[in-house]
Design a protein around this nucleic acid. Structure first.
Length: 171
DNA sequence: TTAGTGATATCC
DNA sequence: GATATCACTAAA
């Protein structure tokens, strides 16, 4: 059992995203109880040229975190009621990250954050050396299949069809 | 298939 | 200041 460190996140999101699948997302609640959930689906968002990435429209207050250090949690409110959780990857000044799209038994990115009690107070926190939330590797080896990303039709046909979605496919 | 929801970005 | 947009979900 090993917590993921900064070296894990400080790589290209296309390397980090598939490796996050099968890892354990651990959340320690305020009352001390611990929730562990296996990550079953991620998506990579990579750079300003990726029209699906929030940073594609340039650097703003909201996307500032994407340009920052890897291992940082980026929480985004979608449609006024759903929190989506991402982790920043790669070098500084490179806007890229990985969206946690689903966990075991928790299909749907907003269900995942709701279950874990994640909200905007986690925005800007780190997965590294954090006592509320972190990621563990328990040695589980996930079979991965890739697919095109969903929910970003607005990004155009090309960016909506790149196979940057990583899904656990264990039998 | 559709409504609901609110932060963000963009346009006055 | 206003409005258009949006990495979704639940209910039907």
């Amino acid at each position: 059992m090993m917590k993921l460190n900064g070296d894990f996140f400080n790589r290209d999101c296309l390397e980090v995203a598939p490796e996050l699948v099968g890892k354990l997302l651990v959340r320690k609640l305020d009352d001390g109880s611990i929730i562990k959930i296996r990550i079953t689906e991620t998506e990579a968002y990579r750079g300003e040229e990726d029209k699906g990435c929030h940073a594609s429209k340039g650097r703003t207050q909201r996307t500032e975190l994407l340009y920052g250090e890897s291992g940082i949690i980026y929480v985004y409110l979608c449609y006024g009621m759903h929190w989506l959780m991402n982790v920043i990857t790669g070098e500084k000044e490179q806007p890229q990250g990985v969206l946690f799209r689903a966990g075991e038994g928790r299909n749907g990115p907003a269900k995942l954050t709701k279950f874990l009690g994640v909200d905007k107070s986690f925005n800007g926190e780190s997965f590294i050396n954090n006592s509320r939330i972190w990621i563990e590797d328990d040695g589980f080896e996930a079979k991965i299949r890739t697919d095109k990303r969903v929910g970003i039709d607005y990004a155009g046909e090309y960016w909506a069809s790149v196979p940057w979605r990583f899904i656990m496919d264990n039998k």
